[in-house]
Simulated scan of single mutants.
Amino acid sequence: SLCFKEKNVDVEKNTFCDVGSGAGFPGAVLSIYYGPVLNITLIESVSKKCSFLEFIKAELDLSYEVICKRAEHINLEFDYAVCRAFGKLKDIEPILLKLSKKGAFVMKGKELPEGYQFCKIDLKDIKDSYIIFIPKTK
């Protein structure tokens, strides 16, 4: 959420997808934090993980959607894509940009590749981590 603020992303006026949601991080967590104002779709290819995401959605009364497919096979477009630990940056960047109209946020930990915009995360419990921002250029 801090990176959204730093990059002037209005969560209420944009759509988001979380690619490779796994156990719901960051998509389900963002849905908890922002509530129903966040329009987010969680994309996950493993059916067991999709079932878990649906279970959490029902248990916590969250408002996200779940698509149980590989991201490469989805022909939808969102304003922004977010992901964490989905793969190597050079491999996932084209997938994320295909799914997004405006850009992608990639949680990549402490390693910061050269040539990318980023937000530095330096909180009490999370030190010296980065979220890479890849703007979509037309």
Rank of each mutant, 00 (worst) to 15 (best):
C17H: 03
I43Y: 00
D61V: 06
V29I: 15
F4R: 00
D128P: 04
N75W: 12
K13V: 06
K7D: 00
N14P: 14
Y34L: 03
L62Q: 07
L76C: 06
F25S: 04
Y116K: 06
K69A: 15
A28C: 12
S51Y: 13
L97Q: 13
I92F: 03
Y64A: 02
K120H: 15
F4W: 01
K108W: 08
I32F: 10
I95R: 01
V46A: 11
G109Y: 10
A71G: 12
E65R: 14
A81W: 01
D10C: 12
D125R: 10
F55A: 06
T41H: 04
K120N: 13
N39G: 05
E12A: 14
Y116Q: 05
L89Y: 01
L123H: 11
A81Y: 00
L53E: 04
G22N: 09
K7G: 00
E54R: 12
D128E: 12
E72I: 11
G103Q: 09
D79K: 12
K88E: 09
K13A: 11
N39Y: 10
E59D: 15
V46K: 15
K88R: 09
N14T: 14
I74T: 13
S21R: 03
G115L: 06
S63L: 07
I92W: 02
K5M: 03
S129K: 08
V19E: 01
D125W: 09
T41C: 04
L96N: 01
I92E: 01
Y64G: 02
L97N: 05
G35I: 08
G24Y: 05
R84D: 03
V66W: 00
N75C: 10
S45V: 03
S21E: 04
K5R: 08
K110V: 13
K13Q: 11
I40V: 08
E6T: 04
E93M: 05
G20K: 04
I95F: 03
M107A: 12
E77S: 15
F4I: 00
D125N: 14
D18F: 07
P36T: 11
I43S: 01
I56M: 15
V37W: 03
S45K: 15
E114Y: 11
I121E: 01
N75A: 07
L53N: 01
V66T: 12
P26I: 11
I56R: 13
I56K: 14
K48D: 09
L30G: 00
V9Q: 01
F55M: 06
L112R: 09
V29R: 12
L112K: 11
L89F: 04
I40R: 00
N14G: 12
S47H: 08
K101Q: 10
T41K: 02
F55G: 05
V11F: 09
L60G: 08
A28M: 14
I67T: 09
I121K: 00
E114P: 05
I32W: 05
D10Q: 12
F52I: 02
C17T: 07
F118D: 00
V66A: 09
I74W: 13
F4C: 01
D61A: 15
